[in-house]
Design a binder for these strands. Structure first.
Length: 597
RNA sequence: GCCCUGGUAGUGUAGCGGCCUAUCAUGAAGCCCUGUCGAGGCUUCGACCCGGAUUCAAAUUCCGGCCAGGGCGCCA
């Protein structure tokens, strides 16, 4: 028997035709005579009915009933029958196939299922098993409609992205996964070389150097759906291997790159949702993002902006503020309007103070607006003039609640930004289904590590500076794509001058030797007519998670790793046989029998 | 490496010193039922992560471990 339709296909127009369906037994309902099976596949669910009164004479009702008894939940089965209209009044309007059913005439068990350890059918309560159960039986978890829809969205997203890039003259080119380990960046996954004992490849952390060399090679416009590997601890939006939509273009500036991404996402949006995506995206400078949102990936779906009140509140006769100001610190304020502020009682304020301490702030100072002035336990230290200025600057009205944060610049911005996010969440200010894309621009080229005092890059060492590398606080040509408080990718124009590139490495503390050894091949490539070029890479797992409303990227990946970088479906990583290690001339310090050697 | 939360039948949960022979739902097995759609009814089955300690008494408290998730560090 060959299937004639999928389980999401049959409609009233098919009534009277013979159909063969193959799929999984989702639910079955035996009424003692008439019995129903909900047959499911990726495309939908169709009701199959066994009706002894309506069976044709030549059908062997007893044999058929026997076969159907073997149809345990989630077994793969094949059924044949006649499409007919449902009995009037029993149509299921929630289901596109709900007006018809297939009157079964023959059936075959294709793959019997043991009792499934998790429930595949959509549950009213929406309770999922724990993630380790879902991962161990991922093939069953994948049968759930939610997982099917998510992976469908991911596939269609990539389809439309490819479609757009092809029209924009991009070439899809693969780059090596096995490459050289380089000093900068994340910890590498290493792969031993059998042919050259004692040497190792590193799995690609990104195709950065290769795509730049493709530009030197005249490919002009490149893209790749690139798997990248970083051996760092996982988070809900980070795992050891992940997918980037990577691209690079020659003879372009920052805006050219941004235009391509905007055009591509608009094309994807139209394809996925039939909706227009508003472009161009808004631009927000790094500086503004930090001062107004306390984050370099601001969530722009709601207000609660931070305000710099250093000059005003710093004049208060308040010891804590005085001390902070004298050390060069800042004071930021968030105004919570009356309608929302009334939900925050004294106990809630205390919880925010606790939260502030958790996110690296000393605490927070609060005041409530009443009768045209500000009231709180510490208001006596604030002169009428300071209070008047605060009210004026933040446009404070009666009933409003004011939070003040004081401390060193960056820590205070980031801490206040964290409190802002928590406020928005608690107060329900984050709208569903809203996509606030933005470009974070005007980023510094370097940062100083607050612990070691060393110079580090804000993005990576290949970013072209906007002015001389020697300038104080030199700006880079790099920019981030931000969506709803999440960083989706960063791009830049690259350095295409070998001497400038060498100097950038050197400023990051790399010795001339090290530069030559690790990047000599790349610096040499820049000496043969390297065109000005730039590009960007988008984190696809994150992007899909955001547009499908998933908490974790693991829900957008068919076979993800867990928090401890293991996959429970194939139980990896795993030990290998000694002879394999021997062939690679590898001796592990973690080997059980090391003491015996 | 560190911090936080959790671990109870196949699955999701309640219980948080004695009322526990451990709740409820779902599931599974069996029986009944000819129009359901997470079918329904009846019966049955099935669990306190591991080790130690405290106590007359531990699922419950304490200590150590293991497992899962969230976070810090890390992630050019």
């Amino acid at each position: 028997m060959k299937r004639t339709h999928t389980c999401g296909e049959l409609r009233t127009s098919d009534i009277g035709t013979e159909a063969c369906l193959q799929g999984w037994v989702r639910f079955s309902r035996d009424h003692g005579g008439v019995a129903f099976i909900d047959l499911a596949d990726r495309y939908g669910i169709t009701q199959v009915v066994f009706d002894p009164e309506d069976l044709s004479k030549d059908a062997d009702a007893e044999a058929l009933a026997e076969t159907m008894r073997s149809f345990t939940r989630e077994s793969a089965v094949s059924i044949r029958g006649t499409v007919r209209s449902r009995v009037e009044g029993t149509e299921d309007e929630r289901n596109p196939t709900g007006d018809v059913e297939v009157l079964i005439t023959s059936a075959e068990l294709l793959g019997k299922s043991d009792v499934p350890p998790l429930e595949v059918g959509d549950q009213k309560e929406g309770v999922l098993p724990s993630e380790d159960i879902r991962m161990k039986y991922r093939y069953l978890d994948l049968r759930r409609t939610d997982m099917i829809r998510t992976l469908e969205t991911r596939s269609r997203f990539m389809h439309f992205a490819r479609q757009y890039l092809e029209t924009q003259r991009f070439l899809e080119i693969e780059t090596p996964i096995l490459g050289r380990s380089t000093p900068e960046g994340a910890r590498d996954y290493l792969v031993p070389s059998r042919v050259h004992p004692g040497t190792f490849y590193a799995l690609a952390q990104s195709p950065q150097l290769f795509k730049q060399m493709l530009m030197v090679g005249g490919m002009d416009r490149y893209y790749q759906i690139a798997r990248c590997f970083r051996d760092e601890d996982s988070r809900k939006d980070r795992q050891p291997e992940f997918t980037q939509l990577d691209m690079e273009m020659s003879f372009v500036d920052e805006k050219d790159i941004q235009d391509v991404i905007e055009g591509m996402l608009a094309h994807v949006w139209k394809g996925l949702y039939g909706k227009k995506l508003e472009t161009p995206f808004r631009r927000i400078s790094y500086k503004e993002a930090m001062w107004s949102y306390g984050s370099d990936k601001p969530d722009l779906r709601f207000g609660l902006r931070l305000n710099d009140v250093t000059d005003i509140a710093g004049k208060a006769d308040y010891e804590i503020f005085r001390r902070i100001i004298s050390k060069g610190g800042i004071i930021l304020g968030i105004r919570i309007e009356a309608a929302l502020a009334e939900k925050i009682g004294r106990n809630e304020v205390d919880r925010y103070i606790e939260h502030a301490k958790k996110v690296g702030l000393g605490g927070l100072t609060w005041m409530r607006a009443r009768d045209g002035t500000l009231d709180s336990n510490i208001v006596k230290y604030f002169s009428p003039e300071v209070i008047g200025n605060l009210i004026g600057k933040l446009d404070i009205k009666d009933g409003d609640l004011l939070f003040l944060f004081a401390g060193p610049e960056k820590a205070t911005q980031e801490g206040a930004g964290q409190v802002r996010l928590k406020l928005a969440e608690d107060l329900g200010l984050i709208p569903e289904g809203v996509f606030e894309f933005a470009w974070l621009v005007d980023c510094p080229l370097f940062e100083t590590d607050p612990v070691s005092g060393r110079l580090t890059t804000f993005h990576h060492p290949f970013v072209k500076p906007r002015s001389s590398l020697d300038d104080d606080n030199v700006m880079g040509s790099s920019f981030d794509l931000v969506l709803n408080g999440s960083e989706l990718g960063s791009g830049s124009v690259r350095i295409n001058d070998p001497e400038m590139q060498r100097k950038a490495f050197s400023m990051l503390g790399m010795s001339a030797d090290k530069i030559e050894k690790d990047f000599g091949f790349f610096l040499e490539a820049l000496r043969y007519g390297a065109p000005p070029h730039g590009g960007i890479a988008l984190g696809i797992d994150r992007l899909i998670a955001m547009i499908t409303g998933k908490e974790t990227i693991r829900d957008t990946i068919a076979f993800p790793k867990n928090k401890r970088a293991q996959s429970l479906f194939d139980d990896s990583p795993a030990k290998v046989d000694d002879d394999k290690l021997e062939e690679l001339q590898i001796l592990s310090l973690a080997m059980d029998d090391l003491d015996d050697l």
